[in-house]
Write a protein that binds this DNA or RNA. Structure first.
Lengths: 216, 216
DNA sequence: TCGGCGAGTGAATCAGCGTTCACTGCATTT
DNA sequence: AAATGCAGTGAACGCTGATTCACTCGCCGA
């Protein structure tokens, strides 16, 4: 008499889980992490509060999965963009531009995933994400330094710094929000340019690199 | 018989207020904004919870005053450093280096005042602070651009970006913490260098500028 | 010295939110 | 059709932390 899971049921369960995660995502986009409250998530997913707990053992786990999903996608996109580039500096530029462009597209979510404290448990995860992004960039910086394409510098510091520059310049609370696709594109390019200069690429060269990065 | 406030009483009241604010400050330094809880502040100030409310109408007001105090000092220091510099670029360098050096000295407090969300009310204030810092730098950037000391660029974006770079590179959670005075000095200089490069100062020139900034 | 203002107290209260659990009803099994 | 496993429910609970308020008591004015 142990129940077997019907095709149908399995699909419904998976569907529900997706719906709940999607609700959490939507709330994070709209109101930041603070807006991701179980009651709100449940309501948005047309489900009772208790139901959320059938799918996620705790709010922490829910948010963890949310961040992990976001992080996975972002990192994959950065890697793909970088790996498609012709040389180390191009790769670096592509990496930065991709991160910037994608972050800009979902400002609130990116900001929440990268910067908004929730609790100690989650903080670790968020830092992991940030760490991964920084590490990805740091690796590219090192390669470029080795190839004498960038001046000697402490990549351990430069990497977080340029991530910070991109985040603050583009999606931070003070950043002017570009309206229109062209403006967004321009903003991404300017930010990338600034980041490359920060790492020691001379202006003219940086301009050329930025111009060549294919933006999504 | 309406009471007059004795010299003595007035002093004691002022003293208490200072003590409470100082307790809040200490907690922010030790545990970040999350650690600034009324009960904790009260205990640290050797006072009952209720007493805190004799001096500050709400926790929000307490934190607001804390941030305002910090912000005032930081801005004043930045202005002083910049105004003492010989030229626009030096002023910019001094501004950045001063912000960086002071932020590094009290990492946790600076981070808390600049980045840690508390509530919507406070967020506004925190943003004001950030805004002021960015504005200070933005003004110096504009001056430098006008004098053709920096390439054309959107200062509205560059300013937050370099602030972000400094914060993340130096006091962000990923930043390596320098140990020892010399290392700290070095870190500040490297960060300033990076920020100047980001704005378009060529490496060699930036190095010279940074070397000349007197660090506190 | 004595009456009383008001600073100081801290236990109680309130509020927000995550989490639980006894219960409901649908779908599967027999 | 009856029995029952299991997803779903949502009111109630518990915790954390801000805020209140009835009361105490030290100091000022007379």
């Amino acid at each position: 008499m142990p129940y077997r899971r019907t095709e149908n049921i399995v699909r419904r369960l998976a569907e529900r889980e997706r719906t709940i995660l999607e609700a959490a995502r939507a709330l994070a986009i709209e109101h930041g992490m603070a807006g991701v409250q179980i009651a709100a998530v449940a309501e948005r997913a047309h489900v009772a509060a208790g139901t959320v707990y059938r799918y996620f053992p705790s709010k922490t786990d829910l948010i963890a999965e949310l961040i992990a999903t976001v992080a996975g996608k972002e990192l994959a996109a950065m890697r793909a963009a970088a790996d498609a580039a012709p040389g180390p500096l191009s790769a670096l530029a592509a990496c930065l531009a991709t991160f910037a462009a994608r972050a800009l597209r979902t400002r609130k979510l990116a900001w929440a995933a990268v910067a908004e404290p929730v609790d100690a448990e989650i903080d670790t995860l968020r830092l992991d994400f940030r760490q991964s992004v920084a590490a990805e960039i740091e690796a590219r910086i090192r390669t470029a330094i080795t190839g004498h394409l960038l001046p000697e510098q402490d990549a351990r510091m430069s990497a977080p710094a340029v991530v910070g520059a991109v985040i603050e310049g583009l999606i931070g609370p003070l950043a002017p929000s570009p309206d229109g696709n062209a403006a967004a594109r321009e903003a991404v390019q300017m930010t990338t340019l600034l980041a490359l200069r920060a790492l020691g690429v001379v202006d003219a060269r940086a301009l050329g690199l930025v111009a060549q990065v294919p933006l999504p």
